[in-house]
Each structure stands twice: as C-alpha cells, then as structure tokens.
C-alpha cells in the first residue's frame, strides 16, 4: 500500500515512498534518518518529537504522514548550518545551561523557534505557554526559559 508524497524538508524539495499508516516522525527517523526528533511517548504527551510544519510546532508522532504532502517541514537538523554555525536559539541553549540529558532538547528548541518566529519579544508567560507541551525531567525548565528569553533579546535589532 505504498504511496509517494512530496514536500519541502529543511528547505529542500523531497519525495518519499511511505506507508499511509506512518506518522511524520516515522518518516523523518526511518526514511530520512533525521533522528533529532525523538519519540518520547508516541502519544503527543511529551513534545520530544516536535517539528515545525508550515510554521507551526506540531507533535510529529501524531501527524499522519499523508498530510505532509505539499507542506514545509523544518526539523532540528534544519537549524544549524552545515559548517556548524548554530541557530541563535541553539547557541543560547548551550550558553545558558538549558541542556542536561538532551533528549527533550531538539523538540524544545523547535517549539521555541516556532514561538520566536511568530513573536519576536515574548514574555516569560508566552515562553512557558509555548513549551508547556515539551516535558523535561532534568532542568526544571528554568534555564530553558532563560535561554529562550535571551535568544529573543539577541534577535531584537
């Protein structure tokens, strides 16, 4: 029952043969070997699989692969440049101690990116709301929130 879909992945036009019952997460991890997005629960309850589809943060574990057709998908792998320059949010996570075990980190950063793309100057509450669906067991969120705040300040002209 294989089907072919085409979409934009991290800025590139791609095509993939998929099984209709797959999730976007499965496609990313298994077909494209982009393993930055993680499966933490598979039920949309932890946010470790967060990627951006058409500008919106979504749980890729619940996103039917067939709905990806024609979409623009950005994953954590699409943020840093190939020569290793990090995105300002990534840099801020590194500099502010927002990473411990790191399993939630890619999803967390994608939620933060979707927020900052939409809202250049988020309040602490906006940040908390944006990452409320990204569970983290290590950090208690404090340094993550600080990192996102600082990244937003840096991006201000």
């Amino acid at each position: 029952m294989k089907k072919v879909i085409s979409f934009k992945l991290n800025g590139e036009d791609v095509e993939a043969e998929v099984e209709p019952h797959w999730s976007l997460l499965h496609l990313l991890r298994e077909t494209f070997e982009l393993t930055g997005a993680k499966e933490g629960c598979g039920k949309g309850e932890c946010g470790a699989c967060t990627v951006i589809v058409d500008g919106k943060a979504i749980n890729s574990c619940l996103f039917p692969v067939m709905e990806v057709e024609g979409c623009e998908v950005t994953t954590i792998e699409g943020l840093a440049t190939l020569n290793g320059n990090l995105h300002p949010i990534q840099e801020s996570f590194v500099a502010n101690g927002a990473v411990q075990c790191g399993f939630c980190t890619p999803g967390m950063i994608m939620s933060a990116k979707a927020l900052l793309d939409e809202n250049k100057n988020p309040s602490e509450d906006d940040i908390r709301t944006a990452i409320a669906g990204n569970l983290c067991r290590c950090t208690g969120y404090v340094q993550i929130i600080e990192a996102i705040k600082k990244a937003s300040e840096r991006r201000e002209p």
């Binding site: 949309g44 946010g47 967060t50 919106k56 943060a57 979504i58 749980n59 619940l62 996103f63 939620s111 979707a114 927020l115 709301t129 944006a130 409320a132 669906g133 990204n134």
Partner: peptide, 9 residues
C-alpha cells in the same frame, strides 16, 4: 487545552 503543538492541529 493540551499544548501549543496539540492546539495547532
């Protein structure tokens, strides 16, 4: 309701 990710879809 849920999270931003959930509310987005």
């Amino acid at each position: 309701l849920g999270s931003v990710q959930i509310r987005n879809v």
